[in-house]
Amino acid sequence: MEHNSAIVIAMFGTTVESALKGILNIQDKMTARYPNTPVRFAFTSNIIRKRWQKRAADPEYRQLHPEIPTEVFEVKTVLATIADLQDQGYDSIVLQPTHIVMGEEFLDLGTYVDSLLRMGTIKKKKYKPFYKIALGRPALGMYGTAHPYAEDILAAAKALASDAELARSAQAALVYMGHGNEHFPSAGSYLELAQQMRTLYPDVVTLIGNVEGFPPLSNVINELKRLGVHRVLLKPFMMVAGDHSVNDMAGPEEDSWKSVLEKNGCTVVVAESGLGEIDAFAELFVRNAGEAAADAGISLNA
């Protein structure tokens, strides 16, 4: 029996037009690697999808933003995107998240995959809606015996060489603002990534703090003071430079990271670009999708 494969890139999404560059860059890299395999993306955020649906129904908005692809206006949930592909005859799906770590949203995708694979028919196994579905790893890896997470973290650190160079040129420490999570222990991955970057780029002080969970911004500030650093390059450690970047990181409010750092004696240089805009970082997800397909025995048409 012939099996047809496709790739779905799962993203939280963004409503910030300029931040779409990170999302589209990942899709472009995936399509370039697998030109004969359908590559779709889906947004996991209900709020963001509804915002794009509203914009799609606004002729004036669409006229003002001809640069936004139709696929963004028509973006669907992960399950709806997979269902569309199944309806078109694709029974082997690689679901590649663009998450940084194994947090809540990544684990939710795992439940989707498990549930879809359990779907069957009473009569014959070959009539199951899906032959195989594989879930790719997040950027900083996951637990398991197939792919050591430390290797994923090292690959991510190498992919961020351009950020280290940016900080070096600015004669500043590199301070990342990650999202983090208050309910899932992801801090170790962030801290190990920062350590790997300090090892690879010893002339650049690299620190990571999170909006939620550990380590908080206060830890970053304490470390900057301990090291006597007074100039920082502030950059989002997120796939897109969306709302968190515009407001929480670099906004004019007193509690933005930029404002708090300045109150603590730092000169702050802001780099408002997401990780997805870095070609080498976007390629990590292309690699992870390919390895997930290989592990599951799914053939992707290059």
Results as ranks from 00 to 15, higher is better:
Ile7Trp: 00
His244Ala: 00
Val72His: 08
Met238Asn: 01
Val232Ala: 03
Val270Arg: 02
Thr267Tyr: 08
Ala293Val: 01
Asp28Ser: 08
Leu79Met: 06
Leu174Phe: 13
Thr15Lys: 09
Ser256Ile: 14
Asn25Phe: 06
Pro59Trp: 13
Asn288Gln: 13
Ile208Ala: 14
Pro69Ala: 02
Gly120Thr: 14
Leu284Tyr: 12
Glu182Ser: 09
Asp108Tyr: 14
Pro66Asn: 15
Gly141Ser: 15
Arg118Thr: 10
Ala159Asp: 08
Glu253Ser: 12
Thr98His: 05
Asn181Lys: 04
Ala157Pro: 08
Glu291Cys: 04
Lys158Pro: 11
Glu283Gly: 00
Thr70Leu: 13
Ala150Leu: 09
Met11Tyr: 07
Gln171Glu: 15
Arg118Met: 07
Gly136Lys: 01
Leu300Met: 03
Gln171Met: 15
Trp257Cys: 03
Met142Tyr: 02
Gly89Cys: 05
Ile100Gln: 02
Arg62Cys: 10
Glu283Lys: 11
Lys126Trp: 14
Pro69Ser: 07
Phe12His: 15
Val205Pro: 00
Tyr143Gly: 09
Phe285Met: 04
Ile48Glu: 10
Phe41Ala: 04
Gly103Cys: 05
Thr199Gly: 09
Gln63Met: 07
Gly274Tyr: 06
Thr98Arg: 04
Ala296Met: 02
Pro202Glu: 14
Leu275Pro: 01
Pro138Asn: 00
Ala302Val: 11
Gly188Ser: 15
Met142Val: 08
Arg118Phe: 05
Pro216Glu: 10
Ser299Arg: 07
Ile133Leu: 07
Leu300Thr: 02
Leu166Trp: 15
Phe281Ile: 09
Pro185Tyr: 03
Val260Glu: 11
Ser273Glu: 15
Gly103Glu: 11
Pro148Tyr: 03
Gly22His: 02
